[in-house]
Each structure stands twice: as C-alpha cells, then as structure tokens.
Amino acid sequence: MKTKKILIKIIYHTLVVAFGFVMIYPVLWMISGSFKDNSEILRGSLSLIPDELKLSNYATGWKGFSKITFARFFANSFFITAIATFGTVVSSSLVAYSLSRIKYRGRKIWFTAMLATMMLPGQVIMIPSFLIWYNLGLANSYVPLILPYFCGQAFFIYQMMQFMSGIPRELDEAATIDGCSKYSIYTHIILPLLKPAIVTTVIIQFYWKWDDYMGPLLYLSKPKSYTVSLAIKMFADAASTTDYGAMFAMSTLSLLPVFFIFLFFNKYLVEGIGTSGLKG
C-alpha cells in the first residue's frame, strides 16, 4: 500500500515536470539560441546545449541599430512600464473603492460602463484614438501610451472590487464612528488591506505593458523612443540571416525583467487572485 502511494507520487511528479518541461521548451530553446552560432540555429538543432558558447551574440545585439544601443530601449521600456503600472494601481484602486464602498446616484451606470469597457475590443477604438491623439499633436509621444493608464483599467478595477468585497464593512463603520472621513478610510484601511490585489495588478500590468507591441508600433516613430519589443521586431526585420543569435540574445534579455518581477512577487500572485474570489 505504501509503495503504491510512493509510486503514484513519483508518476505524478514525473508527469508534471515532464509536461512542464515541454511547456517551457520554446523559451529554453530561445535562451540557448542566444548562445548559439547562427548556422546552428538555422539547422533547426534541437539541442539546448550550444556547440560552443557564443557570448558575442550579446555584444553584437546590444549595439542595437542607428547608433542607439539596447540600453536606451530598455530605459524607454522601463520608463513607460513603470509609470503606466503605477498609474494603473493608483487609479484602479480609487475607482474600485468608489464603486464597491460608496453608495451614490449614478454608481450603477458607471459600474455598467466599467464592465462594458472591459469587454470592448481594443481594435474598435484603436484607430479613432490614434486620430484623436494625432489631432492633439500627441500622436508621436509617450502620452498615449501612459495617460490612459491613469484612468483606471477595467480589468483591475473589477479584480480589486472583488477583493474589497472580502474586506468586512464593519471596519469602515468602526472607523466612521471614530471620526474618520471616507477619504481616510481609503488611505488607512482599504489601501493597506488591498496589498495582495495590488501585487497581482503590478505583476500582470507590468508584463502586459512590457510586452505591448501594438501601442508603440502606432505611437512611436523615432528609434530613440522605441521600446524593447519594437526594437526587437525592427532588429529582426532589418537583419539578414546573419543575426539570429543576436536577436535571440536581445529577446532573452527582454524577458528578464518580467521574470524577475514574477519571481519576486510570485507567492502573492495566487493568493491575490485567490482571496479576491472572482465570483461572478
């Protein structure tokens, strides 16, 4: 009986690990490709271990193009991503507080509007938004990539509302009796308790924004202002076959920040979503 249990355990772990390995194989392949010689990549070699470790791919790739190194592209990406993520957290938590904790006329309408935006396909507003920014003379700047994130993101507002519904209302009532205004209830009670939901928002918004390609593609026109994702695509387009290794090297680097954020906050992620319940 005991051996059977151990056997099941072994089978379980082997299966989970094996399937997990298949899952991340493409990513591993890319990372190993960043150390491979170009001809080895083009042969479609399966091996994850390069014939010889070619570090020069990183040096070549880092040089970037148009006299702009990847340092610049990373800086741009960090700038946009950090500010947009910050904006999302602040604005979404404010809005979530309003919609879930305060009773006022019109709340239902805004709640419905929020749900509607969550389901609105981005393509519908992509072009008119572009034209509006263009008419404001801001079509070639970071503003369209950042400002909307300070207006709350429906997806995160919804998540935070779910989370807040788990915070007992008695806390608010007790605070009101103690003379707290609704503003300080937000800053002193809700915000500190919201931490797990905020962490979830940070992770997800960070990698959404970091990976974003369409936005930069539309709004950035000078290489100096390119984000990493745009720079990699341009790198791949312009380069002839000789540069696959360098492209993979830069791709690998571009994924590092996302990995780090994830590793750092990982244990909060499931908890954050977990406690929010997400009951429809």
Partner: peptide, 8 residues
C-alpha cells in the same frame, strides 16, 4: 547629426 531608421 543624422538619425537614421531602416526597414524592410
């Protein structure tokens, strides 16, 4: 100073 871009 010339800032250049190239594409396919």
């Amino acid at each position: 100073t010339i800032e250049y871009e190239f594409y396919d």
